[in-house]
Design a protein around this nucleic acid. Structure first.
Length: 264
DNA sequence: AGTACCACCTGACGGC
DNA sequence: TGCCGTCAGGTGGTAC
């Protein structure tokens, strides 16, 4: 489930294998992965005979720059990832776009559920501003974080999930952050004390940077991380109280009713 | 500004 | 065995 740490891991993977490789051709095997119809023609023109020279991540969006100085955008939806391989056979069912490099290797964008997309864009700055994305969750300062949450009349969980407030947090890391901060997911932002906001900030930063360091490999996450217990019928790793499942803004939400109590 | 609801897509899982 | 409904995830659009 690509959230910020997964996308950062994909960015590093892309940088390791795709940067400075000459692109021989681009195969688009499923146009459903494109956002703009004209990209069927534009992407091959943009990429063929060029090289990627730089990467940039903002929230869950990955931007890749070519030596022509043009940019493309990759979003992983919920099932997207890269495969760097030395042959494209056997065919992988969900490879949607395949970059064929002159060194004989391929970078495939595999996206089972097609919620991801690839798009030609002008540049990251204009895209970020057009989409009204908030500051990146790993780069945001405490003061801006506080300002983004203060005075909002909505549950903290839905604020964390809103990419326009803070970019990069998805459903799993939102639950993780609220659990570690001992905050009830439906708590209104308005009701949060400065201390709680500070705690949220520190926990969020710590969780995301830990996950990035571990290359978003859940199996390696610290034992006490909530993600290891975020399952039906599981007990709280802290107090052993059975976890509860609810919905916040239509999204499935796990929490410990004993550790994360509503404010009175 | 905030919320609800639907849509997109596929595979896994539970129930019968 | 197999069918069928439900769910999961991130985003985008629309209507209120």
């Amino acid at each position: 489930m690509p959230e910020l740490p997964e996308v950062e891991t994909f960015r590093l993977y892309f940088a390791k294998y795709a940067l400075d490789q000459k692109i021989q051709q681009v195969l688009i095997t499923d146009t459903g992965i494109l956002r703009k119809e004209e990209d069927i023609q534009i992407l091959p023109q943009l990429l063929t005979e060029k090289k990627f020279i730089a990467t940039l991540r903002h929230g869950k969006f990955l931007f890749c720059q070519l030596n022509s100085k043009k940019w493309i955008l990759i979003h992983f939806g919920m099932s997207g990832y890269f495969r760097y391989v030395d042959q494209i056979n056997p065919y992988h069912k969900h490879d949607r776009v395949i970059f064929h490099f002159t060194n004989g290797y391929y970078l495939a964008f595999n996206c089972m559920r097609k919620f991801g997309h690839i798009e030609s864009i002008k540049n990251p700055e204009s895209y970020i501003s057009a989409k009204k994305l908030g500051p990146d969750a790993l780069k945001i300062s405490y003061l801006v974080f506080k300002k983004q949450l203060e005075q909002r009349k909505r549950p903290i969980k839905s604020a964390l999930l809103s990419q326009g407030i803070i970019a990069g947090v998805g459903n799993l890391y939102a639950d993780e952050t609220l659990f570690q901060s001992k905050i009830y997911p439906l708590t209104n932002c308005e009701a949060l004390s400065d201390k709680m906001i500070q705690d949220l900030y520190e926990k969020l930063k710590n969780i995301l940077s830990t996950a990035v360091q571990l290359q978003a490999d859940y199996g390696k996450f610290p034992e006490h991380f909530f993600i290891n217990y975020r399952r039906k019928g599981e007990k709280c790793p802290r107090c052993k109280h059975p976890l509860e499942i609810t919905k916040v803004g239509q999204r499935t939400t796990y929490f410990c009713p004993n550790c994360q109590k509503p404010m009175v």
